[in-house]
Computed example of a mutant assay.
Amino acid sequence: MRLLLLAVYILTFLAGVPANVLAFRTFCRKVRTRAAPIDVLLLNLTISDLIFLAFLPFKMKEASDHMQWLLPFPLCPLTGFVFYVTIYNSTLLLTAVGVERYLGVVHPFRYALCRRPRYAVVACVLFWAVTSLNLSVVYIMPYAQWGDIAAEPPSTCYLNFTESELGIILRVRLELFLVLFCVPFLICCFCYVNFLLVLWRLPNIGRRKRLRAMGLALGTLAVFAVCFVPYNVSHVVGFVRHESEHWRNVALLSSTLNACLDPLIFYFSSAAVRSVLKRCLRNVVAKMHILKCG
């Protein structure tokens, strides 16, 4: 399992960092010049992914040490907290992107009257607050396990629990499954199914634009299904069986991949990202042509 964890972490880091840095620069420029709600949401999704990727090397170190925590112990609760907050923050931001697209297509005139970037900013702040409060147990529990500061810290990080600790953790995980996964997923499905139905009936939409919109809808739902379902299912299984499932770390790998799959959503959602990406590809092709000729 150690090699699998390391392989997925390294792949996610190598693929996710350049893609998200490119998206971050693009959305920062777009927000400074002519911000739209979708740009604010996608910028926050990029920031969430970059924070996640910044802490991913600590998880690589943990995996390479056979899930023993050999780093300074204060990094344990901080890494776990940031790791899970950014994962669940992504579910809320992806849902918000779906809602924004749904309102823009299904209720274009009413939505145009209240389409303000500041509302997206408020939503993003609310998302960070909700996920941070719900995941606060991930930060508190390792210190509770440590107990006496003078004693030796636990050898693992947020992995082994007593019966009383497990009772708290399993209830929190079930709540995360219901509130931060099921509700956003159902909202996302409703928005994108109706988005596609309305889009399909519009006669004046070009084929390329229609395909891009379909790619956005299907890509977002695929990210939800592939990245978030396995890990959240482990919450339910663990609650029913009253144990922390040993395969949770493997299920978590699918959520880890979200950081390098989100740029696909950026591509379908933002003309600015598509333009920058095409320009980068042209520059790479031109340089390769120059090297070949030289």
Rank of each mutant, 00 (worst) to 15 (best):
Q145V: 00
V138A: 04
Y143F: 11
R115P: 04
F127E: 00
V106P: 01
Q145A: 03
V138S: 10
L113W: 10
F109T: 06
N134Q: 13
W146A: 05
V137T: 15
R110N: 14
F109K: 05
V125H: 03
L126V: 11
L133S: 14
L103D: 03
R110Q: 08
A112V: 11
C124V: 13
R110F: 07
C114E: 11
A123Q: 05
A144M: 15
F127A: 01
G104D: 01
A129G: 05
Y111K: 03
V106M: 06
L133P: 07
Y102P: 03
W128F: 12
H107K: 08
P142F: 01
Y139F: 15
V125E: 01
C114D: 14
R115V: 06
V105K: 14
S136L: 13
V130W: 07
A129P: 06
I140Q: 08
R110V: 02
V138E: 02
V105E: 03
W128A: 14
R101V: 09
A123H: 05
R101Q: 06
S132M: 01
P108A: 00
C114G: 14
R118P: 02
V125D: 01
A123Y: 10
N134H: 12
A129H: 15
I140L: 14
P108N: 01
V125P: 05
L135I: 11
P117E: 04
L126P: 12
V137S: 13
Y111I: 01
L133M: 11
R101K: 08
N134M: 08
W146M: 08
Y111C: 06
A120D: 01
L133D: 14
P142K: 00
R101D: 03
V121G: 03
A112W: 02
P117A: 05
N134L: 13
V137K: 12
